[in-house]
Write a protein that binds this DNA or RNA. Structure first.
Lengths: 355, 355
DNA sequence: AGGCCCGGCCAAACCGTTTTGGCCACGGTC
DNA sequence: GACCGTGGCCAAAACGGTTTGGCCGGGCCT
């Protein structure tokens, strides 16, 4: 007999119990129609007695919105499915996005690229998408655009500057400012032969960093030296160190865009007898726990994924609600100086820690 | 005029175009009724021409299932909302869970504790829940149980052993075996005064580890020495080191359940002049990138969150599909030996690396 | 020949909401 | 007194699928 009581109460049950129509119940909850205060009270107590909660799916069917946004985790599609690069960044981003979504009354769904082979049907049920680090001619962006599904990218979609106003709404990751920040910091520390280690994804982060780096070098009459290694390549940083040293012009400063690569780089330098930061200073372009605990600790750009996530969610929520986009806030992302780029001790002085 | 073409095609459009009823269209896709092969073909091409995809929400309304499971991220509710402890574990878990869910045709929703203050309506739309690290008298478990919502926990719900068959379905994290593994390893390395540093959450991991540790000590006639520090306490490991040393009986081996604490512990020991692993060996109970790159590198138990996540998703999916639970697989979780617990060099021998 | 089963198809009910259009009574306006 | 506006309520039509029950005709058995 218990199966009788197991059915969750519907709006009809509430209506019956309150002695009104379902319309009235719907109205009292949505605040849409006109319902007398006394009636509202009756409805509310009836609903409460029954433990009624509106069915989100039925609502979704009717209003064509579920209250769920999707975060596309492209790293999930990497060749090694059990491997996530830039774990810190993604995890901090996803966690903060979930919290921000919650605050907007939305759920956060983690999906792999819906243009990929295993397109999850459920993924398409979401009201909007957050796409991190879109690449040039991004198929996902194209798909979302043509399907008319609202989305927000984190970082601009590169290679569209010519299109003008056609650019998709995005959260600014300020890659230009941050690159300059890192390079200036290395320069201020005394580095005069600064190399760049970048990933191969054609996203804004990589592309703009390279562009800014080259302009920056030209401005200072420095010959740029760029090494490209795939983001997801294990030991990529190590390899980059080798390539930089073998190339002849040994750098005295390196800006490595990926935290993993920065780690490998430092290790690679150590193996070849170069001391960090004494012989070569290193700054990573993305912060991670591992940089904090490495020996030496490694300086980095903290992109503030939490803040980016919050902004992305807010922008998307505003879009979904037909509200104007939130105003741009303070500049996001900052430099965290650690041992790997600490200013050189004056020559001839003891190397021990100073009070 | 474009708004006309913008409506996505429904099952009715397909039916009309194929010259059949909607029932037939539904049947050809679900494989439920009997539909002649030729008719099926007509329907499929019609659907393809129209770019038809069934509406997940409408399906969900009828079948009472959306194809989405929820992963409860309790760390999101921590006091500092921008802080996740054991980032590695959670991120690896969530990523793998999303992939596994995808493979089952399910979406993965990240939600905060639905019993919490900000209960997201959408959260309740999910078909089932994955609850990591349930605690004694877990309110969430109680809520899910009473609401009849299917769920799977990762790690047993502690304090229910008396209930017998009443225990909730769970994925075994094998905390007993792993604790013994770590302790035996310390013992084999020569440690004879082994301390335990544990968190304060009353989950299986902490509780069982303590229990096994105490039994293990009794068996070897060793006086147990346990230090408790909250998981989310920054600098908790550091504090633990202080407490252990101030207590008088300086340990020569420590098993610290949280990776953060292990890190702080090593740092704390170093400050007080204790060398790791020479004076005291350390093993962490949870692996993380930071342990891999710390100096010295720190041994740990790799819980294999990816495998746990996969199992949790599969178990939940089976439950949702009314299928029997998947068979238990190989033992999961293993010890990763690093420098912090390397066997002592025989006295009088050089300390340099050996080939 | 009659009865039965079964393959192939369809019309209609149903899932739990929201929204539209209308009904009724009441009060104010001319 | 006819008219209109409006506050309060409701019945019914969506929303886009799935499932039930039934209809029809042909082959097989007796």
């Amino acid at each position: 007999m218990r199966h009788v009581s197991t059915r969750r109460p519907t709006i009809r049950d509430v209506a019956r119990r309150a002695g009104v129509s379902v319309t009235t119940v719907s109205h009292t909850f949505s605040g849409n129609g006109k319902v007398a205060a006394a009636t509202q009270q009756r409805v509310r107590t009836a609903a409460h007695d029954l433990g009624y909660h509106p069915d989100v799916i039925a609502q979704g069917l009717r209003n064509n919105r579920l209250g769920v946004i999707a975060l596309v985790a492209r790293q999930l599609d990497a060749l090694r499915p059990d491997f996530l690069y830039d774990v810190d960044y993604f995890s901090r981003f996803a966690g903060a996005a979930a919290v921000a979504a919650l605050a907007e009354g939305l759920g956060l769904m983690l999906v792999s690229d819906p243009t990929g082979p295993r397109a999850a049907g459920a993924a398409l049920a979401s009201d909007g998408f957050i796409v991190t680090e879109p690449v040039v001619d991004d198929p996902l962006v194209a798909m979302l655009t043509s399907a008319g599904i609202p989305f927000v990218t984190v970082g601009e979609v590169p290679g569209r500057s010519a299109d003008g106003p056609d650019t998709a709404p995005h959260v600014d990751i300020e890659s230009g400012r941050l690159t300059a920040l890192a390079l200036d910091h290395l320069w201020d520390g005394g580095a005069r032969r600064i190399a760049l280690v970048t990933g191969t994804d054609r996203n804004e982060w990589n592309l703009r960093s390279v562009a800014v780096y080259e302009r920056w070098c030209a401005h200072r009459r420095m010959t740029p030296s760029t090494v490209r290694v795939p983001e997801e390549l294990d030991g990529g940083g190590h390899q980059a160190a080798g390539r930089l040293l073998d190339a002849g012009a040994v750098p005295d400063g390196v800006y490595a865009l990926t935290s993993d690569h920065a780690l490998g780089l430092v290790a690679g330098f150590a193996e070849r007898g170069l001391r960090v930061p004494d012989d070569v200073r290193v700054v990573a372009g993305s912060d991670a726990e591992s940089l904090r605990s490495a020996r030496p600790t490694i300086s980095s750009i903290d992109l503030e994924p939490e803040e980016l996530a919050r902004r992305a969610v807010e922008a998307l929520a505003a879009r979904l609600g037909g509200r104007p986009p939130p105003p741009v806030g303070r500049p996001v992302g900052h430099l965290v100086v650690r041992a790997s780029s600490a200013p050189a001790d004056p020559p001839g002085q003891a190397l021990g820690p100073r009070p």
